[in-house]
Amino acid sequence: MIIICWYQSRRLEGVRTMRKKNNGLLLALPQLAGFLVFYFVPFLITVWYSVSFGIGEREFVGLDNYKELFQNEMFLLAVKNTIKYMSVTVPITLAAAMLLAAALQNTVKAVRFFQMSFLYPMILPIASVVLGVQFLWGAGGAWNRLLRAVGVEGTDWLQTPAAFWVLCALYFWRFAGYYILIYLARLQMIPKEYYEYAALFGANEKARFRYITLPTLVPTILFTLILSVMNAFKCYREAFLLGGSHPDNSIYLLQHFMNNNFQNLNYQKISSAAVSIVAALLFVTGVICGLYLLMKKGEKYG
């Protein structure tokens, strides 16, 4: 009898667990179905396109498209420029935003004015921003007039390697304010008592930033890092409006390569590039996860 009761209770428990599991799956189903239908299946199709040739009638060509892609100097240039652009803009913008936010933390006067002004660059339409950039650095722009006034011949800066730095400056101007606001919001949540207590023990400004501000900001830094990388990837509009579909080599980005090949209907090239980018991102994410796990393990075992 006891055995039967025990068996019945186990069965019921199993059914409940199964129900729980099914409910979880059911809840996740819309999201999962969306992911499968709109992301995963198209990605698998993209993988197939990347190893085949032709439209309509496709012919398997193995890794030929990849070989061609990695020999394509424009693809390599686009990868190099995109990495260079991200490695310049992301750390500089985030570091400057953090320092400015820390400096503004204790400002009492005109905080509202600063907060509002930080958002202006983001709400301005990109086309008008680019017009402004051309007014400054275009062939007949203010910078060239200034140069001519001192006897130096100007040039169309947006068609020279200087365009890269113009694009970086544009990114900094557009997004630094937004990140400052995020950091400022987090900084204002740090209890003032922490700083007062540290000051009592003789901690100077630098030590307070190093041991109180910075550790508290770590999750926000991670968040802004992701946001910043995403925004850096989305800078194609700016680059396109500044230099068109074939800009100066210094601002030829991955999106230029993808977009131009789309215009030429070269799906195999776009597909192999997309799959390569996903593979590279998975690899980087894997390395970061691995490092994170190693760090955790290190903390656990001292």
């Binding site: 040739f53 032709g54 439209i55 215009q263 030429n264 209907l265 070269n266 799906y267 195999q268």
Partner: peptide, 13 residues
């Protein structure tokens, strides 16, 4: 429709 006919010929379309 074909911005660069030479490149379209290479695309397999």
């Amino acid at each position: 429709l074909f911005e660069n006919p030479y490149k379209t010929m290479q695309s397999g379309a």
